[in-house]
Amino acid sequence: MYYNPFHYPIYPPVPAYPGYYVNYPLQRTYPPVDIKIFSKSVKSFRLLMEQGSILLDRLGDEGFAHKMMTVAQQGKKAEVDQLIKSISLKVPVITKFTPSGVIFELTTQPTQQAPMSCCTLTVSMKWGI
């Protein structure tokens, strides 16, 4: 046989032996659903929501809000963190702020059973132009 540049191969290719190309649809098998971790996350997130509500109640106090915005405007992050700690929330809070807004990240605390935090509630609010 000689090489013919105008000869195109047949698609799909003819199998080398019968049964080589089998057109079975891919069917993935998944493990059975286990909602234990998800249920714990839901419970933990409820705590975050409760703590977030306490945070918002305190931020709604005009005196507290004025004090926090004043020290934030002066760039005193340690004092802002101290004000947030004075609320005595049961979960850690990370505070980030700019001249136009503030972000609070409430996270669940790791335990021996769950060494990593499962959930984070991010509260992002505008407080300037």
Rank of each mutant, 00 (worst) to 15 (best):
M1Q: 07
M1V: 13
Y2I: 15
Y3D: 10
N4A: 10
P5K: 08
F6I: 05
H7E: 15
H7F: 12
P9T: 09
I10S: 13
I10Q: 11
Y11E: 13
V14H: 07
P15R: 12
A16L: 09
P18L: 05
G19C: 13
Y20I: 07
Y24A: 08
Y24L: 14
P25Q: 11
L26S: 13
R28P: 09
Y30W: 13
P31G: 10
P32L: 15
D34G: 05
D34I: 12
I35R: 10
I35N: 09
K36M: 11
K36A: 12
I37A: 12
F38Q: 12
F38R: 07
K40N: 12
K40F: 05
K40I: 12
V42H: 06
V42P: 05
K43A: 15
K43Y: 10
K43N: 14
K43G: 11
F45G: 04
L47R: 07
E50F: 08
E50D: 14
Q51V: 02
Q51E: 15
G52Q: 13
S53N: 15
I54L: 13
L55R: 09
D57M: 08
R58Y: 08
D61V: 11
E62R: 15
F64Y: 15
A65V: 00
K67C: 00
M69H: 07
K76I: 04
K77E: 04
K77Q: 11
A78H: 00
E79S: 03
D81A: 05
I84H: 06
K85S: 05
I87C: 06
S88D: 10
L89M: 08
L89R: 04
K90R: 07
V91N: 02
V93I: 06
V93Y: 03
K96G: 05
F97L: 04
T98F: 00
T98E: 10
P99D: 04
V102F: 03
V102G: 06
E105W: 01
L106N: 01
T107E: 04
P110E: 09
P110V: 09
Q112F: 06
Q113L: 09
M116L: 10
M116K: 10
M116F: 07
C118H: 05
C118F: 03
C119L: 01
C119R: 01
L121R: 03
V123Q: 02
W127G: 06
